[in-house]
């Protein structure tokens, strides 16, 4: 008989003897992982959506009148004086009219009676990626609004603000559910192991008296914690995957959600979640064992 054989047999006995509480712990760990992973998945996908929207982000500065080449150069210099930008494009009244007509497509005949210069001239400013925090955008927009000859600056501020607040709220929820995962994994596993220890106290005391080493006593319990971590996180992630597929198949029709491509976690990320769960559960188990072995 070797060490690992003895350890596996002992772990098997523990699981058989305390299976109801083991199942409850497994369920709790699975649920915690599911809750955390669900919010984290939404969060990462929302960040992806934010990135995608950010690629199309531009500030449109409406001007009182069409700038001549000299004024264009002056405005360009003023804009660059705030910060580097990716691109600055001047749109004349005529270009604005043509774009609008193109957007209307078959309905462009509604413009037939309109003069071709009824839309204002504008500047399209595409900010650099690093300038896309909400505060920076606001500052930039305020700066542009103060440029001489500016009517109005638009960048979908209401929508962007809401999106940023949503992302911030989501990050708080992810943080809280992460805390929940840590607490449940460590404490639930710790208490389950403590119950197992209490249920088998006589045997553990006897093992000490007949010369079992601390590793011989401790390892089966650590293995229980390890198993709780592996099974709990795998079940939680599997449930999330099923939920993800269900949402995708039921909400993939035309609509808001269809605008974005939602993705599941990449394999390295799944492995990281499982590894962290294993670590937390094993820590829970270890702390209980240490308490017992110290007494």
């Amino acid at each position: 008989m070797n060490f690992w054989f003895a350890v596996f047999r002992q772990a098997g006995r523990n699981l058989r003897q305390t299976w109801p509480s083991q199942c409850m712990t497994l369920l709790t760990v699975s649920l915690s992982v599911l809750i955390f992973a669900f919010f984290f998945l939404v969060y990462t996908n929302m960040l992806g959506v934010g990135d995608k929207l950010g690629d199309d982000l531009r500030l449109i500065v409406y001007l009182e009148e069409e700038p001549g080449p000299e004024l264009q150069e002056q405005l360009r210099r003023k804009i660059l004086a705030f910060d580097e930008v990716e691109d600055i494009r001047f749109i004349s009244r005529l270009q604005a009219y043509e774009r609008f007509a193109a957007q209307l497509g078959d309905d462009s005949d509604v413009l037939a009676d309109m003069p071709q210069d009824f839309l204002p001239a504008s500047i399209e400013v595409v900010p650099l990626k690093n300038l896309r925090s909400l505060t920076q955008l606001k500052l930039f927009s305020e700066y542009l609004a103060k440029l001489p000859g500016t009517l109005k600056v638009q960048y979908g501020q209401d929508w962007i603000e809401r999106f940023y607040y949503f992302i911030r709220l989501l990050s708080i929820v992810v943080f809280l559910s992460g805390g929940l995962l840590i607490l449940t994994s460590v404490f639930m596993v710790s208490y389950t192991i403590r119950l197992t220890i209490l249920a088998r106290q006589a045997e553990l005391e006897l093992l000490k008296l007949v010369g079992a080493t601390n590793n011989y006593i401790k390892t089966p319990f650590l293995m229980e914690g390890f198993l709780q971590g592996v099974l709990g996180s795998t079940l939680g992630l599997a449930a999330l995957y099923v939920l993800f597929q269900w949402i995708r198949s039921n909400f993939s029709g035309p609509g808001f959600l269809a605008m974005f491509e939602f993705t599941f976690f990449k394999p390295p990320f799944l492995i990281a979640i499982i590894a962290i769960s294993i670590l937390l559960c094993t820590i829970g188990s270890y702390t209980s064992m240490q308490k017992f072995l110290r007494t």
């Binding site: 045997e203 000490k208 008296l209 079992a212 080493t213």
Partner: peptide, 22 residues
């Protein structure tokens, strides 16, 4: 302590008055 004590206890067989059986 620890491993040394465990090894020593493996070399001492004890039949307790209260048996200490499972």
């Amino acid at each position: 302590r620890g491993r040394a004590l465990a090894k020593m206890r493996q070399k001492i067989g004890v039949a307790y008055q209260d048996f200490k059986l499972l």
